[in-house]
């Protein structure tokens, strides 16, 4: 499925490093990721694993001291890393848009919701004010904002969290982008609102044919909305598979840990399974497999050599020595 020309986004061997005073942190390390047309692709991992930096790298909005050091990012076959800053601005907000985790702080408090959505359209579409206004109100209606004309004139502090996230989605969708990056869009919301927002995104994705890159740490969100999933750990992809395959035939111990961390109704004994330990510092990564210090199946060689991505089934790859030969695992 890695044929770049029929996809929306193709990231190849992307590395984004942060050049800090204490050393170089490889927040994104040799990541290869593909988003087919009209699909929802999840990027999953704990906080600090590099998923947000991957997203910001796509938009080339990584702020200093971070910098993309190698790899390629192409949108519909065009190399984004070769674009000039002006060309890149034309792409942001019109062909790739992004929504963020905190709807409370992601809107500018001193402008009305309508104005902020209109702005995206006016800088890209070259539309007049009247038309931009009409289309914004229309978009507000499409994202399920009640009384869109009144909400157009509302300031962010006058809207609830769910409504603000709908405004963000309206802003992201108003220019009909081919890719929308959603960085933990529902993390700050109530569970009931979360379900509504996910439903809305799926609906918009189907209506407008926009692809979505869904960044989350929540396996429930993945199950709800994604077609294909990448699991990231400490800057690297550790497992990738179709969503059903990932849940039915989980191979990587880390993914298993993520799934075990979800409370499940009717699971034997009340105890939640977690992953022991914490995410390693990017400045001081363990040798060999980055997950080995926290892995209950780690052998000695795991901390000596780094595993490659092994294809365990069509479209299902795993970065683990124990998963290369089927779910029982074996030695390299």
């Amino acid at each position: 499925m890695d044929t770049a020309d029929n996809g929306t986004l193709s990231i190849k061997n992307l590395s984004t490093h942060f050049f800090t005073r204490r050393g170089i942190a490889a927040a994104v390390d040799d990541v290869t990721l593909f988003i087919p047309k009209k699909s929802v692709v999840g990027v999953v991992g704990e906080s600090g694993c590099g998923k947000s930096v991957t997203a910001l790298s796509v938009l080339r909005l990584v702020s200093r001291p971070g910098r993309i050091v190698s790899g390629s990012v192409s949108l519909g076959g065009e190399d984004l890393l070769a674009k000039s800053p002006a060309e890149m601005r034309q792409i942001r907000g019109s062909r790739i848009s992004m929504i963020f985790q905190e709807p409370m702080t992601s809107l500018n408090p001193v402008y009305t919701a309508g104005r902020q959505v209109m702005e995206a359209m006016m800088i890209h579409g070259g539309t007049g004010k009247a038309e931009a206004r009409d289309r914004t109100v229309e978009m507000f209606r499409a994202v399920g904002i009640p009384e869109p004309e009144r909400r157009f004139r509302a300031f962010p502090h006058q809207l609830s969290g769910g409504l603000r996230q709908r405004v963000m989605i309206a802003m992201a969708m108003v220019c009909r982008p081919s890719l929308m990056i959603a960085d933990e869009p529902t993390t700050a919301l109530d569970v009931t609102i979360e379900a509504q927002i996910l439903h809305l995104m799926k609906e918009l994705q189907e209506t407008f044919g926009t692809s979505i890159m869904m960044i989350t740490h929540n396996m429930g969100v993945v199950a709800e909305i994604c077609d294909y999933v990448y699991v990231m750990y400490a800057g690297k992809i550790v497992e990738q598979a179709g969503v059903f395959e990932l849940f039915d035939d989980t191979r990587h111990p880390y993914t298993l840990g993520l799934l075990g961390s979800i409370p499940r109704h009717g699971s034997p004994k009340g105890r939640l399974l977690g992953i022991p330990g914490t995410v390693p510092s990017l400045l001081d990564l363990p040798k060999g497999c980055r997950f080995s210090p926290r892995c209950d199946r780690a052998e000695r060689y795991c901390s000596e050599r780094e595993p490659e991505m092994y294809e365990v089934a069509p479209g299902h790859k795993v970065r683990c020595f124990h998963c290369s030969g089927g779910s029982k695992g074996g030695s390299p």
Partner: peptide, 11 residues
């Protein structure tokens, strides 16, 4: 955050 939003908008 809203500055990041403004940049992501293509301003």
């Amino acid at each position: 955050d809203y500055i990041r939003t403004a940049r992501a908008k293509g301003l």
